[in-house]
Write a protein that binds this DNA or RNA. Structure first.
Lengths: 293, 293
DNA sequence: CTTATTATCAATAATTTGTTGATAATTGGA
DNA sequence: TCCAATTATCAACAAATTATTGATAATAAG
């Protein structure tokens, strides 16, 4: 027996003052209404209403029960509509995990745009380059750059990320521009800690004891200062490439583009704040990335 | 779907931190727990918890929902235990309808005894000699004297009521004692309004324009004062018969005994205050009635 | 006094429920 | 790194419950 339905039925019977009228209002048979009330009484072990064929009279127990039941039913309605609302209307707090450099360079604008169109969604942005467990740590969505290993998570590709070898004009003037990957070992290579490219390892570039850092911007600035050659996503080096502080080299040898993904926990019953956010990002990053001109 | 059970299941899952442990605690299969939670989510259209095989994490919506659901569940428990209590423990207000004379003469003592053994039951005693509609007027129980016509009500016989013709010794000395019913028309007959005995009508006793009253005690006192012959239940005339202010006549002609009944609305799910009261009365009036010596 | 309305009972058809077995995923330990 | 154990969920079926229809007793109104 669905007690909630039974309670609702009882309350309706009281309001309508008749089993039959209540049945009509609730679009069910009078027999069923009768059964519901009887089941409720049996469940409680109390007679709730005395009934003749013409009129309904609440018992003392029934009086109390109906009063409390109405309160409870309205509480349930409140609760359910609140939860539904949360779902339907894109509100609440959106907890986002994102890589440090990408976020600091390119996330401010889309976030502002999103909040303008969804003012009821709060944002908590956590920057972190390690791989976070979004479920364990309670994130709604994580932005990831790279190739995704399979998991139970759902990923949506937002845009391509192009990787480029770069160096400053001064460095190249001083040490020469390598014509192929095989010449890289003779150069100073500025290595990003989290990237382990198979091509580079084979080429013997990753020898250790060079400049390695877990922050791409630092490497980028080092390259601008003439410290060596860096392999960077263009969302980091793009500005320097555009204004000539860096020049791209080894264009033919550039690795396959990787991508920016939005990663979240589930596809079914995805909360609309998450869906709206991802849609918003997807819009923003569609077309050629701004950092590649 | 029984939403209450589903809510209870969800709360249990949260407290146990696992579907399987919750299933054990609730004595149901893990599959069913999973199904319940899924149904709840589908009903609400919201994902309530993110689950890996190892751990459970509440969604923002889930967080709110569980919190409110706990409150509601405890409200429901309160309500149901209160109603059950009312049933089990004989408390509340007992509304009694009773005939005027009988109640004023013989009901005080059993009521006091009942209240002593059931202090949580309040009593509202309404004296009325007309036939009350106990359902319509909201009485829990009515005491009735006479023969009951069939109805949807339930009646329990509490004791026999003997009827006796009486007159004062002075009256009989003055007018003589009738030897049979046929002599009654020559006497002053004090008639109780609500009694229409077929025997009496046939005997021509009920001619009208005699002393008629709707209160037996008044008639009884009139008889004591020598006003005539009265046909009364012995619970009214008993005391006067015992102390000699009245004497019984026409013993052979006395009508068949009638009875005192407790009448109530239903047999199933009778509230225990009513059951206890009727049991108490039944005890009290068992054996020979006190007013018949 | 008849007729219409009403609550409830009984029986059946339809739906839902809960169970079992199987599967994919994740964690902890070897 | 790989295997075993645990876990959530899916699929299918049997069992129980639900809701419908028709019937009945009781009551009120015309």
């Amino acid at each position: 027996m669905d007690r909630i339905e039974a309670m609702r039925t009882l309350v309706s019977v009281i309001h309508e003052g008749s089993f039959t009228r209540a049945a009509n209002r609730l679009a069910m048979s009078p027999q069923l209404v009768s059964k519901y009330v009887a089941q409720l009484e049996e469940h409680l072990g109390v007679r709730l209403l005395n009934r003749t064929t013409r009129r309904i009279h609440l018992t003392e127990a029934g009086e109390r029960y109906v009063q409390q039941a109405q309160q409870i039913l309205s509480d349930i309605d409140d609760m359910e509509s609140q939860t539904g609302d949360l779902q339907a209307q894109a509100r609440g707090l959106l907890r986002i995990a994102a890589p440090v450099s990408f976020a600091s360079l390119h996330l401010a604008e889309p976030l502002v745009l999103f909040q303008q169109s969804h003012p009821d969604v709060g944002i908590d942005l956590q920057l972190n380059d390690r791989k976070v467990d979004i479920i364990e740590e309670g994130f709604d969505v994580a932005l990831r750059i790279g190739h995704l290993k399979d998991s139970s998570l759902v990923a949506r590709k937002l845009t391509d990320i192009r990787l480029a070898y770069c160096a400053s004009p001064e460095y190249l003037k001083k040490y020469g521009e390598p014509a192929s990957l095989s010449e890289l070992p003779q150069h100073r290579f500025l290595q990003y800690s989290y990237m382990e490219d198979e091509q580079l390892r084979q080429a013997g570039v990753l020898r250790g004891h060079q400049f390695s850092c877990n922050n791409g911007e630092v490497l980028n600035n080092a390259a601008i200062a003439g410290a060596g050659i860096v392999l960077q996503p263009t969302f980091i080096s793009g500005a320097a490439l555009a204004d000539g502080h860096l020049v791209e080299i080894l264009k033919q040898e550039a690795p396959e583009p990787i991508a920016l993904y939005a990663v979240y926990a589930h596809r079914t019953l995805l909360s609309s704040k998450v869906r709206a956010f991802i849609d918003s990002l997807s819009d923003y990053f569609s077309g050629a990335p701004s950092w590649d001109m």
